[in-house]
Amino acid sequence: MLELYRKRLKTSGNYMGEALKKQSDMIMDNTFTRDIAYRKCYIDNQPVDAKYIVHTYYSISKDAVDYHLQFRPGVHYPIGTFVDIPDDVGMYNRWLIVGRSDEPQFVKYNVLKCNWTFKWIVNGVIHECLGVLRSRSSYNAGVWHDYYTTTPENQTQFIVPTNEHTQTIDYNMRFLISDNKINPIAWEVSKREDTFPVGITKITLKQDLFNPNMDNKELMIADYYKNKVLEDSSEKVEYEITYSGKPNLKVGGSYKTYSIPNIDFCSWKITGIDTKNYQVITPYDSNQIKIKIIKDYNLIGSVFTLSAYKGDTLLDAIDIEVISI
């Protein structure tokens, strides 16, 4: 009789604390929708019950604040999960889980509202991901001066879930993050963190100059035209322009030689770049040309065409990109 009584008591828990926790979980679950903080949320288009809890308030002198999200007892989701939460008028907004508390009961998640769609290009493939744009304190005038140049000096940060797309983001990669489609602001990745906590990736950026020769402001994708120079064709041709290394020319660099083997003489034509922006040397009665780009950093990313002719017959043509030193 006593043993049966003990077994009956243990159905609620092996000790008093466990029994109280189970009772609290049961009360929380049964009264969950009666709270004013209750929201019918969606995760991966599936309805999820949650409580949207305010624990701090927004100020224009600070960054956007996080809010707490509490699910029913025993329901958990990993950091980096998107959650659709309705606002006070029932309009759904997408939020990102960026943290989780370690409370013994009624675990709460930190969520931030997604406020920007980030776009970038890797190996010709365009990636995009919704995320959270964060401000960073920058105690300077916004520009840096040295003896030779003046460059913008500012920084910002964004948070995205860690996945197969965001893992392609690397150092020195550039982004266009701006609400100005006329003169957009460009940024370059200077720091990447993906373990604090695991599930989200924090990207820190420093301001860079917008380059119309490389950046697409209509699509708001930086370096969109960077790899537009075609690779050399693998097909065998009778005449082909040859050079050392890659065909690119460095802005302000030295002369680079281009030639057509298997022919004694040819004429050359350069199109797509103003004549004032380059210098050439063409040895008399030869198959060579030497080209040098002037020191004008606005030319970085521009592409021009070098063509070789025998009389009126085109022998070969290549695209040449102007790159930084």
Rank of each mutant, 00 (worst) to 15 (best):
N115M: 09
A186C: 05
N110P: 12
T201C: 06
K181W: 08
L112Q: 03
P161K: 05
T204M: 03
N213F: 15
Y109E: 07
Y171W: 12
I121W: 02
N211W: 05
D194N: 13
N123Y: 02
Q167E: 09
T156F: 09
L205G: 03
E164N: 15
Y171I: 12
W116T: 08
G124E: 07
M173G: 15
L133P: 10
E153T: 13
V122W: 03
N115G: 13
W116P: 07
V189G: 08
K108L: 04
D215W: 12
D146V: 06
Y224R: 09
T117I: 08
N172C: 15
R134A: 03
V143H: 13
Y171P: 14
D208I: 14
S137W: 10
V122Q: 03
P161Y: 03
I200M: 03
Y109H: 07
T156S: 08
M220Q: 04
A222L: 11
T195P: 01
T162I: 10
V111D: 00
I221R: 13
V107S: 00
F175T: 05
Y148F: 06
G99R: 05
F118M: 11
F118C: 07
D179F: 08
T168W: 00
A222P: 04
N123K: 03
T195R: 00
N140L: 05
D223W: 14
T156M: 12
K206A: 09
E153A: 15
Y139C: 13
Y148G: 04
S137C: 05
G142Y: 10
K181L: 12
F118W: 02
N183A: 12
T151V: 05
P197R: 05
Q207P: 09
D223R: 13
E103V: 11
W187A: 10
E164V: 13
L209K: 12
T204E: 12
C129P: 01
R134N: 08
W95A: 02
E218A: 00
L133D: 01
G124V: 03
E193K: 03
I182Y: 04
V189K: 06
Q155F: 14
Q155H: 14
D223K: 15
T201I: 05
Q167L: 14
I221Y: 02
F210V: 06
A186D: 00
V107Q: 02
L112C: 08
I185T: 11
T117G: 06
D223P: 13
K113S: 02
T162V: 15
S190W: 07
E128T: 08
I177M: 01
